[in-house]
């Protein structure tokens, strides 16, 4: 009886652990490099302390035509951060995997106007994301389609 109990506890433990791993792997499908539909930037999404964050890693036009220098976050509401380089800027923050291919509780920042919007991300398929930025209610928002980018040469 005691042996059965121990076995049951071990099996339950393994089940719990593997299901947690499964959940993590599902959530980690968001990790990677993505391109918004306007094709102006690449964003790399990584995981930090259990939440998902996305930073700009590539800009199609990295130089500001007015200053002739690399683009910075000139619209940041905090005046002291207006010179933070856009390359590396974290546009997506604090996403938590909710299951069923959806990440929520996060925000998306629009460097074009310095506004931060609520955001929800849905995995349409392994290589396509529906990203909806909104204000308060999801009704007041807009959905964009992002595509996954990979380094095929390196994979070979």
């Amino acid at each position: 009886m005691k042996k059965f109990k121990t076995l049951a506890i071990i099996l339950a433990g393994i089940f719990l652990f593997t299901s947690m791993i499964g959940e993590t792997e599902e959530g980690d499908k968001l990790i990677g490099v993505w391109e918004p539909s306007n094709k102006k930037i690449y964003l790399k999404i990584d995981k930090i302390s259990g939440k998902y964050y996305g930073k700009i890693v590539w800009l199609r036009e990295p130089i500001d035509p007015v200053t002739g220098k690399p683009k910075t976050d000139k619209n940041n509401p905090d005046e002291s951060l207006k010179d933070v380089p856009l390359k590396g800027f974290r546009m997506l923050k604090d996403f938590v995997y909710k299951g069923d291919g959806e990440w929520a509780d996060g925000t998306i920042y629009d460097p074009q106007n310095g506004s931060t919007y609520n955001c929800v991300i849905k995995l349409r398929d392994d290589n396509t994301l529906d990203i909806r930025g909104y204000i308060g209610l999801k009704t007041f928002g807009r959905t964009d389609v992002w595509k996954r980018l990979v380094n095929k040469k390196k994979k070979k």
Partner: peptide, 21 residues
């Protein structure tokens, strides 16, 4: 080329603390 320093915690939003030009 540059550094950006941020702070985060499990129940708050990640924030920029500063940067080096």
């Amino acid at each position: 080329n540059s550094f950006t320093v941020l702070l985060a915690s499990p129940n708050t939003s990640m924030k920029e603390c500063g940067f080096i030009k």
